[in-house]
């Protein structure tokens, strides 16, 4: 059994309580939600916080999916399983269900949270790629109030976010636009593994042309990456296999994969292309299916 170093533990009873504790304890404290990243790191002694602030009791306050006409708001303590099972969310953004189906396994999904996934800032993390694809924004709360940042601002590098020591991520906001759909494609060595590469796509049509499109990639750069070059190339064009091919090639050019146990950089670049193509194709097919 791997055992963590000594750590003090307290359960937060409210967001304000959690932030108060963070303010008092500073950088020596870590929040723990699902714990599926932090606890293994502690057991391997890659992380040794002095204090753990357990925020699982905040699920009542921060566990929600609110689908509104112009915006979807998801609380940071929403569990993977809730994202997977929400029909309402899948209706607006099927990419969430696509991704959740290939995130880890049911045991992890029962416990792991949206906020925890994003704050871990693993370059291979699926929900980060989803939020990047959808152009989500992150609501960060501290002692002096809330601030809202884009996904690009949120990530500062591998395992690094804009959330400061005495702050916590409380909500994700995703803008809703008409005639859109989305999809997520992931290649993994084995079910439950991190992605070798994954690609999310979101497309909005207007009169048969692409009004806007976004592509987000995971595991091919320091953070999950949203590709503006791809969006620029797709806007105003009619969806076609050639266009997807072109978008895929742009995605492959724009990413910076490295060779590791999951695969060679070359293969990952190939996947970035192939999966971008597939995700775009599926997004458009979904819009057309809906009519």
């Amino acid at each position: 059994m791997q055992v963590p170093a000594p750590v003090e533990y307290e359960r937060a009873t409210s967001v304000d309580h959690a932030i108060g504790l963070l303010e008092r304890l500073g950088g020596s404290a870590r929040l723990v939600a699902g714990g599926h990243s932090l606890l293994p790191m502690m057991k391997l002694r890659l992380a040794s916080p002095e204090y753990l602030i357990d925020i699982n009791d905040l699920h009542g306050e921060l566990g929600y999916i609110r689908v509104e006409p112009a915006e979807v708001r998801i609380g940071a303590m929403t569990r993977h399983r809730e994202l997977l099972e929400s029909g309402e969310l899948a209706e607006v953004f099927p990419i969430f269900r696509d991704a959740e189906r290939v995130i880890a396994d049911p045991v992890v999904r029962n416990r792991g949270t949206l906020g925890g996934s994003l704050c871990q800032a693993d370059p291979s993390e699926d929900l980060s790629a989803v939020c990047t694809t959808l152009g989500a924004s992150c609501v960060i709360r501290g002692g002096s109030g809330e601030r809202v940042v884009t996904m690009e601002e949120f990530y500062r590098g591998p395992y690094e976010t804009a959330v400061e020591d005495a702050e916590m991520l409380v909500e994700i906001r995703v803008p809703v636009r008409p005639s859109g759909s989305s999809a997520y494609e992931k290649v993994e060595r084995r079910a439950g593994d991190w992605a070798i590469v994954s690609a999310g796509a979101a497309v909005w049509l207007d009169g048969g042309l692409i009004a806007d499109a976004r592509v987000g990639l995971a595991a091919v750069g320091p953070n999950t990456t949203g590709l503006t070059a791809v969006s620029d190339a797709l806007r105003g064009r009619e969806p076609s296999e050639e266009l997807y091919e072109q978008a895929g090639a742009l995605a492959a050019d724009s990413c910076s994969p490295v060779t590791d146990m999951r695969g060679s950089a070359e293969y990952k670049r190939h996947l970035a292309k192939e999966l971008t193509r597939r995700a775009l194709r599926r997004s458009v097919a979904r819009i057309n299916e809906r009519g």
Binding site: V187, R189, I196, R262, G263, S264, Y267, K268, H270
Partner: peptide, 8 residues
């Protein structure tokens, strides 16, 4: 025969 090696 991982995907990357099959692709090779």
């Amino acid at each position: 025969l991982t995907p990357s090696r099959v692709w090779d």
